[in-house]
Computed example of a mutant assay.
Amino acid sequence: MAKKITMQQIADHLGVSKFVVSKALSGKGGVNEMTRERVIQAASQLGYFSQKKAYMRSPRTEPNTLKRSGAKHSVIVLMPNIRFQNRESLYWGKIMEGISISLEERGLGMVIISEQNVDNFVSLLNPEGILGLIGVGEISTPLLLEVHRMGLPIVLVDMEDPLIPSDTVFANNMDVMARLTTHLIGIGHQRLQFIGNDRYSRSFRDRSIGYRTALDEQGLPSQEGLVIPLPDLENGSFEPEIRSWISRKIKSKSLPTALVCANDAIALTARDILIELGVRVPEEVSVSGFDNIADAAKGSPSLTTVHVPKEAMGRRAVEKLLERMDKADTPLEKILLAGDIVYRDSTAPAPDGSGS
């Protein structure tokens, strides 16, 4: 039997005090961010988080008895960036809708928490009646550690944390982006450029990898695209950045024939700026997006994009959470739901004479 890993062993491994390790693993104040990351990394490497008795275990409730029970049962839905991740948002709202509908069908409640401060987060929790957590979008490691410490099962949607054992639900971003890029190459485009930032989210990174994989397989160089600064992506203020980039490309006569965008919001902005600056879409430049938000079908030309099964992702997260409660010891799963390319009017064969 493997020897139990203690906080003291982690402290000895790093040359710090047990008090520092305790503070770092609790997610509370008193240690700087660099030290916290070192402690979390060491704890993960030593196997601290994988120990069955390292954390408190919440009472297991059989899923098929939940509706018959008179007790109130709820699932925490953690969404730190509530400004963009809410029921009204074009992307996250559909995931939330899937979670909400699936829970309602089972007679379960949903508690939405946007708190990012660990101390405040803990004070909001009442473990009694909490079945587990579904995290939507990017969530900090300290917050997830606190939930894990409480012994609550975790399912993450559209993100993963290598230090936190959890099930995850994603769209097959990499594969479907590779298919979309291959299609654009197949209709004659050899000067393509990606717009996004692969540091923004796991989904953006996978879409960037899929794009580059398709170029590599077709023997095309992966040209430097527009990397939108993270603050601009997070607050949705990337229009000036895209406008400046397109203007420079037009002036230098180096505009690509196809823009492969990391999501629809970026693609719609690029499409409108191109048209405003006198570039015909798709006759001169094709534009594609990703997510198939409602606005993708509006405007002219309508946007070629990838349909992400957003509501199905939310539903599958609920199903997985209840499965995990029933079968806590089964291997963790990374669930990929298939996306589909939606061909619309913003893409067309490359203009004559546009090859490299």
Rank of each mutant, 00 (worst) to 15 (best):
K253S: 13
K253E: 00
S254E: 13
S254A: 12
S254G: 13
L255M: 11
P256F: 10
P256M: 05
T257R: 04
T257P: 04
A258G: 01
A258P: 09
L259C: 03
L259R: 10
L259E: 07
V260G: 03
V260S: 06
C261H: 08
A262F: 03
N263Q: 08
D264F: 02
A265C: 10
A265P: 02
A267Y: 02
A267G: 06
A267E: 11
L268M: 12
T269I: 05
T269F: 10
T269M: 01
A270C: 00
A270M: 09
A270P: 00
R271K: 10
R271Y: 05
R271T: 09
R271A: 05
D272R: 11
D272C: 02
D272N: 14
I273T: 08
L274P: 04
I275T: 12
I275S: 11
E276Y: 06
L277S: 09
G278Q: 03
R280T: 12
V281E: 05
V281I: 07
V281Y: 10
V281N: 11
P282F: 01
P282G: 01
P282K: 09
E283R: 13
E284Y: 09
E284K: 00
E284R: 10
V285G: 09
S286N: 01
S286D: 02
V287C: 04
S288D: 05
S288I: 04
G289A: 05
G289T: 03
G289K: 08
F290N: 10
F290E: 04
F290Q: 08
D291S: 12
D291Y: 03
N292M: 06
N292P: 02
N292W: 03
N292C: 12
I293W: 02
A294E: 15
A294S: 15
D295V: 15
D295S: 15
D295T: 15
A297W: 11
A297I: 14
K298D: 14
G299R: 06
G299I: 03
S300K: 12
S300L: 12
S300T: 13
P301E: 08
P301G: 00
S302F: 11
S302A: 14
L303T: 02
L303Q: 08
L303D: 06
L303F: 05
T304D: 06
T304F: 00
V306E: 07
V306D: 04
V306I: 13
V306Q: 06
H307R: 14
H307E: 14
H307Q: 14
V308Q: 13
V308R: 07
V308C: 11
V308Y: 07
V308A: 08
P309G: 09
K310H: 12
E311F: 06
A312H: 05
A312G: 05
A312V: 09
A312Y: 11
M313D: 01
M313I: 11
G314F: 07
G314K: 01
G314A: 06
R315T: 11
R316K: 13
R316L: 10
V318W: 04
K320H: 13
K320P: 01
L321K: 02
L322A: 08
L322E: 04
L322R: 00
E323G: 00
E323H: 15
E323F: 15
